[in-house]
């Protein structure tokens, strides 16, 4: 009886340490983002203090406002999501439901494209986009984001399309509906949930991307993940503001992650049954 109790306490202690370790860096950033400059630098670190929204006011509406970068991030992520979905939904339907020669190869090709290291994509793209003047433009970044968002979205959607019973399509054809009409009116409504999940993950991946953004961004287009490093410099780091910016950069993806909670394992392991994966 006592041995069991000791075991239970040990298990609780170990798991609590894990929970704390995962939560702490995030919570600590949130706390620091609510401190005045003197509170942030206090030693020993302050867990209790009078919160202030000053850092947020500064980074949003101050002289070096992060607002344009947040807008940049939203434009890039939404643009990537819309274009990806317009291309991925039809492609995934064809791969999941239609019969044609070379289907296996097509599916393999989509997976194999993910083997290519991102640094191998950005080197040639940097040269090309520089030649046509697309560095520091939305179209440049969104185009190259398709290289990872498309394979991901296609494979995630295929798994949802495969779950629909074939009888639904057959019934529609027998009624004389065209293929396009069947896809649009019968099939798409069936995978609404899957499409919503895919949208969440494509947005999330686009928001979080860093390598392509670092190379291709400039003064016009600079997402928040890149811009936040302006708050660190050799002479002086603006701790509270830095914390506020990182919280702003985390907020959208944390909300989306919790919304998509039930599907997160599926979203993270998509295509993995056959291989692939991302950063």
């Amino acid at each position: 009886m006592i041995a069991r109790r000791i075991r239970l306490i040990a298990v609780l202690a170990i798991t609590l340490v894990f929970l704390l370790a995962w939560v702490f860096p995030i919570v600590w950033s949130v706390l620091n983002s609510l401190k005045t400059d003197s509170d942030v630098l206090a030693y020993p670190p302050k867990l209790f203090f009078t919160p202030t929204l000053e850092p947020y006011r500064d980074v949003l509406f101050g002289s070096a406002s992060i607002l344009p970068n947040l807008i940049s991030s939203f434009i890039i992520s939404i643009g990537t999501t819309v274009i990806t979905m317009l291309m991925a939904v039809p492609a995934a339907y064809a791969l999941a439901r239609l019969r044609f020669r070379g289907k296996k190869f097509a599916g393999f090709y989509v997976l194999a494209t993910q083997m290519l290291p991102p640094v191998g994509i950005i080197i040639p793209y940097f040269l090309i986009l520089r030649n046509i003047g697309w560095i520091d433009t939305y179209q440049g970044i969104i185009l190259i984001y398709l290289s990872f968002s498309l394979p991901f979205a296609i494979w995630l959607l295929v798994s949802y399309f495969e779950d629909i019973p074939f009888e639904m399509e057959e019934a529609a054809y027998l009624d004389g509906a065209s293929r396009m009409k069947t896809l649009w009116r019968i099939i798409i409504p069936q995978v609404r949930g899957g499409i919503a999940v895919t949208v969440v993950f494509v947005f999330l991946n686009a928001w979080n991307e860093f390598l392509f953004a670092v190379v291709l961004s400039g003064n016009t287009v600079r997402p928040v993940t890149v811009a936040m490093f302006n708050f660190i410099s050799v002479e002086q780091t603006l701790w509270a503001k830095l914390a506020a910016v990182s919280v702003l950069a985390m907020l959208p993806v944390v909300i989306l992650g919790i919304v998509a909670q039930k599907n997160i394992v599926k979203g993270l392991t998509v295509g993995a049954v056959k291989g692939g994966g991302r950063r």
Binding site: L19, W22, V23, P25, I26, W28, S29, N32, L204, W207, N208, E209, F210, T225, V226, M228, F229, I232, T237, W239, L242, A243, S246, A249, M250, V253, V254, L256, G257, I258, Q261, I264, L268, R279
Partner: peptide, 21 residues
């Protein structure tokens, strides 16, 4: 719920938080 938090964050934000705070 908590396991989701680190996973959905941008590695750039994670790197920044660790490097500083």
């Amino acid at each position: 719920i908590i396991a989701i938090l680190p996973v959905v964050l941008s590695p750039a934000v994670v790197g920044m938080i660790w490097r500083t705070f």
